[in-house]
Simulated scan of single mutants.
Amino acid sequence: MKIAITGATGQLGNLVIDALLARGANAADLVAIGRSEQKLEPLAGKGLETRVADYNAQPTLVSALEGIDKLLLISASEVGQRVAQHENVINAAKHVDVSLIAYTSIANALSGGMKLAEEHIATERLLAGSGIDYVLLRNGWYIENYTDQLMGYLNSGTVLGAAGDGKISAAARADYADAAAAVLLSEENQNGRIYELGSDKPFTLAQLAGAVGAAAGQDIAYQEMDPEQLEKIYADAGVPGPFAHILVDTDVRIREGALEVNSGELAKLIGRTPASLGKVIKDNLNK
């Protein structure tokens, strides 16, 4: 059985491959798909077959998916272009008779109301209409979305946000990767399964600030912002306007519970408690 991973050279893709190998997958049965042959070389060094393809070029995807049984479609990174790109992958998979597509969607996609979810919802609908068996991995927020900003928090002494007391069931990227590996290697019928994935211990942005401060040994405060003011701060910092709007919209929806997950499915899939917020923060500070 051949398992392919798109976006294999990205952060999540690399971790999924590591998780598949750790779970006993044969490297020769794994196919890493990416845009850059150079970036794929380290994965070839692990014994994987590598194939070059581009989400924007369907013919390359058809070639890359030839002979594949299961496909992990990692959502594209270019917000605003994802639907067309994902449709190219799905059509290519249909052309070569891929038997199952697992797609990395977003938590509470249909009910959360987030602008960030719109392209995921459209992709879920494309999968439902494709005739291919599919499974949805609705990943919650990554803790790394916050730990990537640690230096900013430490230098300013504040975490800015517009999320109020909304709870965020964020988990480490590696745990979501492990969950994807578990689903791909499962011998159970996964067709139609929807996994709502997130940590069992949600936190507020005020609790995030407290955890960063505790790990770093300094005072970090959460500062609640007016959404329009926060969007301006992001824009002034160089965040492209449309993406700044999406980030602030996500915070506003967090207030309403958009990124709180209570399913327990992440822990069940990976067979252990997901890494805690404090541990991920400490690991990042120690890098």
Rank of each mutant, 00 (worst) to 15 (best):
S130T: 12
V16C: 11
G112Q: 03
G10K: 03
H120G: 02
S36T: 15
D29T: 02
L285I: 00
H95M: 11
L65T: 09
G238L: 02
A174H: 12
E78Y: 02
E41I: 08
A107V: 09
E49M: 04
E188C: 01
K282F: 13
K94A: 07
N91Y: 01
R193T: 15
Y103K: 01
L110W: 12
G164L: 07
V79Q: 11
V83F: 03
S263M: 09
A32Y: 15
E196Q: 15
G213R: 04
N88Y: 02
D18L: 13
R173V: 12
A216L: 02
G264A: 10
T123E: 08
I168P: 07
T104W: 02
A93F: 04
N108E: 03
M225L: 07
D200F: 04
E78G: 06
A25D: 10
I106T: 08
A214W: 04
N91D: 08
R272I: 08
R173Q: 15
D29I: 00
P42K: 15
G217Y: 02
R173E: 11
D133Q: 15
A209W: 09
N284M: 13
K70A: 11
A84W: 00
L247K: 06
A44L: 09
N286P: 04
H95C: 07
G67W: 03
A182L: 05
G271A: 07
V96N: 00
V31D: 01
A267E: 12
I220V: 15
D165Q: 13
G271P: 10
A109F: 00
A275F: 05
I3C: 03
T250D: 09
A32V: 08
G47K: 01
S75C: 07
I233N: 12
L197I: 00
K201H: 14
L48W: 01
A206I: 10
I106K: 01
E187D: 10
G24M: 02
N14S: 14
V31C: 06
L136C: 02
E118G: 10
I281D: 07
V212C: 02
N286R: 09
V261H: 04
A221D: 15
G112K: 05
A32P: 10
V252L: 08
G113A: 03
L160E: 14
G47Y: 05
V239E: 04
A211N: 04
D97A: 14
G113S: 01
P240V: 09
Q85Y: 03
Y195D: 01
Q218E: 13
G157Q: 09
H245D: 14
A214K: 04
A181W: 05
W141T: 15
G257D: 12
L65V: 07
R255L: 09
